[in-house]
């Protein structure tokens, strides 16, 4: 745990109170840096990958292989004028992007990064905390849609809230299933319980469900209905210019990264693996899962809203329940 490391290090030459404060400050800075870097790196990977699938090159002009492209985007977005419409709820409008990136920040804080010790702050039930951070987002999506005084935004907000709420239910059932198998809601315990056999063998259906749900919750194509460009322009993000629009990318990509890491932790045994050191196993698995999550975007078109809800309630939720019951029955006997 990185906080403990800093606390102990500062405690060597400072008073406990001061090292408590400085430890938190250091952890905070590291968390912010990680949160800000994820969208820049993943955004670059996303753009390059999509370009290669579509037989293009993607960004090449800015820096080697276009690595500085997203930094240029961020600088540009920060340099835009801060404009707000008339007749909007200014407070709510401005709170939403900050709140969404704060939720992303919380998830970065409490998830282990490839090693039980590489965790910024260890929380006993961090899986549940991550679930809560994900589950709070439809509230803000709805608020964003409502506050902009725009019909597109409102429709997008409704869509977003409905979509995330639908798929969160299946997600919760998956977490319960994993919790039943491992007897804990702590990711480290869950991973350690998979040292012999990965949970994808026990929960194959739930893996598929989780894959679809994580796409739906991260609002990435093909499940990007709340911001479907061709239907609603930018959906609930429509009236956000400048850096407030950039903050949504933080929320989107951090949630994508967290979803990929959770897939690895819950179904593919986390850092467990023979011969090679644990961090290589973890990051290799995460890279593969991220690649799959990203490339799904460029192969499928998006379903309709009613179809999406139908998939969620008619297929994914019952399947999760069935899988949960089977696991429960097996564990009981």
């Amino acid at each position: 745990m990185i906080y403990d490391f800093f606390y102990n290090w500062f405690n060597g030459f400072l008073s406990p109170l001061l090292s408590f404060i400085l430890g938190w400050v250091a952890v905070f800075i590291i968390g912010v840096l990680i949160t800000l870097n994820i969208p820049i790196i993943l955004g670059w990977v996303d753009r390059k990958l999509s370009a290669r699938i579509q037989s293009r090159y993607g960004p090449t002009y800015n820096g080697p292989f276009g690595l500085l492209q997203n930094i240029a985007d961020v600088i540009k977005l920060m340099g835009k004028r801060f404009i707000t419409n008339r007749n909007v709820d200014t407070l709510v409008l401005n709170i939403v992007p900050v709140a969404l990136s704060l939720l992303a920040f919380i998830m970065v804080f409490i998830i282990p990064w490839g090693n039980p010790n590489l965790i910024l702050v260890s929380v006993p039930f961090n899986l549940l905390f991550i679930y809560i951070a994900m589950a709070l987002s439809p509230l803000f999506v709805l608020l964003a849609g409502w506050s902009q005084n725009n019909k597109y935004a409102m429709l997008g907000g409704f869509r977003g809230a409905a979509q995330i709420t639908t798929y969160e239910l299946s997600l919760l059932l998956i977490f319960v299933g994993v919790g039943m198998l491992s007897g804990s809601y702590n990711i480290t315990t869950i991973v350690n319980a998979q040292s012999h056999i990965w949970y994808i063998m026990y929960l194959p259906i739930m893996f598929i469900v989780f894959l679809l749900s994580s796409l739906a919750i991260t609002e990435r194509a093909p499940f990007d209905l709340p911001e479907a460009t061709q239907e609603l322009q930018a959906g609930w993000k429509i009236e956000y210019p400048g850096i407030r629009y950039g903050l949504f990318f933080i929320a989107e990509y951090v949630r994508l990264a967290i979803a990929a890491m959770l897939l690895v932790y819950l179904f593919f045994g986390g850092w467990n693996g023979p011969v090679l050191p644990d961090y290589i196993w973890f990051w290799a698995k995460t890279a593969v899962v991220t690649f799959v999550l990203m490339s799904l975007r460029w192969v499928f078109n998006r379903p309709r809203m009613d179809q999406l809800i139908k998939i969620g309630f008619n297929w994914l939720l019952p399947l999760s329940v069935i899988n949960l019951l089977i696991v429960g029955a097996v564990l009981f006997y």
Binding site: Q54, S55, A221, P222, A228, T229, Q230, W298, R302
Partner: peptide, 16 residues
């Protein structure tokens, strides 16, 4: 049609 349905790859391929 690909673009309208959110399938950008079909869009790019058609133009290719």
């Amino acid at each position: 049609v690909g673009e309208d349905l959110g399938n950008t790859t079909l869009f790019m391929w058609g133009f290719r």
